[in-house]
């Protein structure tokens, strides 16, 4: 279980990183926290010719909250995000979600950008970004662009990143008054990939739901929004929850995993939907 031969280069800033990406093209892979890439290399499932180490790029390690936009540098580790007061204030969803991500040792190294670029369908962060309506900031040698999370995740390990592009940050609209974040996942062991997970954002006005973004992960080929419309204009009660759970079961194209077929995935996702919606304030049970 030793990786194949590769060349290693370190980029100390984004400019250098994108110029190296341009130089080596698809022979190169970016190394950030290495929590997915390095095991894949050890198994020789990933055989990059060049590793561009971006873990020491300082400009990608900051978290700022300005004008109701939370900007998290792609190089921030899970542990940085978990401990940030700005994140706690503007995106409590992430503080709820990060403890579910693997184990502490992995959270000490794994990065936000790494997780989003890897686009594992069972990862928590892509679903959080969908629910939070985040924008992902991409940079290449020819310039920067911003893409909505909804347009970024295309499928299993597949994103809208073009060749030569890297994620440098995410921008999340800060939580609004009347907005609430809830996160939950169901797994057999703590720290496992979820059987099903949900990241839900609801806005309520006088007990009526005015906006909803229900994002799911570990259910299909990538993180996906589902069932949100069934909530609009309704009070959060048992009847609504049943309808939404039903809709979620119908809308998602479920994929089985090693231990759970599509039927189990659907049943558990519907249960998750009910349980997660029941956690929102104002739930009349």
């Amino acid at each position: 279980m030793k990786p194949g031969l590769f060349q290693y280069v370190r980029a100390d800033d984004v400019e250098k990183a994108v110029s190296l990406l341009q130089e080596f093209g698809d022979e190169a892979q970016l190394l950030a926290g290495g929590q997915s890439l390095v095991p894949a290399m050890a198994l020789r499932m990933a055989l990059p010719d060049v590793l561009i180490d971006i873990s020491s790029i300082a400009e990608m390690r900051s978290i700022t909250l300005t004008d109701d936009v939370l900007r998290i540098g792609a190089g921030c580790r899970y542990v940085d995000v978990l401990r940030s007061e700005d994140v706690a204030r503007a995106a409590p969803m992430l503080v709820q979600a990060i403890p579910f991500i693997a184990h502490e040792a992995i959270r000490n190294r794994g990065t936000i950008g790494g997780s989003l670029a890897h686009a594992d369908p069972a990862s928590e962060l892509p679903a959080c970004m969908l629910a939070l309506d985040a924008a992902i900031v991409l940079q290449s040698a020819s310039g920067a662009r911003t893409i909505a999370a909804e347009d970024f995740f295309l499928g299993t390990y597949s994103t809208a990143l073009d060749e030569g592009e890297m994620i440098i940050a995410v921008e999340i609209p800060a939580i609004a008054v009347n907005q609430h974040h809830r996160f939950l996942e169901i797994s057999r062991r703590s720290g496992d990939y979820a059987i099903s997970g949900g990241a839900f954002v609801l806005e309520m006005d006088a007990g009526i739901i005015t906006a909803a973004r229900l994002a799911f992960f570990a259910v299909g080929d990538c993180a996906v929004l589902a069932g949100s419309e069934a909530l609009l204009g309704k009070p959060l009660n048992a009847e609504t929850i049943d309808q939404v759970a039903q809709r979620v079961g119908e809308e998602i194209t479920f994929y089985g995993d090693l231990y759970n077929g599509i039927g189990a995935k659907r049943q558990i996702t519907k249960t998750l939907t009910r349980r997660l919606l029941a956690q929102f304030p104002g739930m009349e049970l």
Binding site: R188, I195, Y259, N260, G261, G263, A264, R266, Q267, I268
Partner: peptide
């Protein structure tokens, strides 16, 4: 006793 096997035994799936 996986979740799937239990759900099947319960007739949930």
């Amino acid at each position: 006793l996986t979740p799937e096997r239990i759900l099947k035994a319960l007739g949930k799936i």
